[in-house]
């Protein structure tokens, strides 16, 4: 089991994130779950591109030429920035919802809407 520990960590993070999204009723905690899911995806992409004993793909004073794959790292950079953007947007939605309904509990919001 310990030869691919990063993938096990990805599964754990995915389960934790999904459980947070499905079981919690607080909007802020649901958004935390989305953030944990984003971290799981980032870790998964990075782990896919890892080579045994590889270094970061930067040639400035590089110690060896056995480098990890560069494209997963670039995609993870994209993913992190989009995660920041969506988190900012979701938290703004939470502020708007709190100001409109006076609560961030999704069940109470559903009752108030009807």
């Amino acid at each position: 089991m310990f030869w691919n520990l990063p993938y096990v960590a990805v599964v754990l993070l995915t389960v934790i994130g999904l459980a947070t999204i499905l079981l919690k009723r607080n909007l802020i905690k649901i958004f935390f779950g989305v953030g944990i899911l984003t971290s799981a995806v980032n870790l998964f992409i990075i782990a896919l591109g890892y080579r045994e004993g590889g270094i970061a793909p930067i040639y400035t004073y590089a110690a060896s030429e056995n480098m990890v794959m560069a494209t997963p790292q670039a995609l993870t950079l994209t993913s992190i920035v989009i995660g920041v953007a969506t988190t900012a947007l979701m938290l703004s939605f939470a502020v708007i919802i709190y100001k409109t309904y006076g609560t961030v509990n999704v069940d109470e919001i559903r009752e108030l809407k009807e």
Partner: peptide, 14 residues
């Protein structure tokens, strides 16, 4: 389901 896949993947040799 995900755990079964994760145990089967190889790490460190893409």
């Amino acid at each position: 389901f995900l755990a079964l896949i994760a145990v089967d993947l190889t790490f460190g040799a893409p």
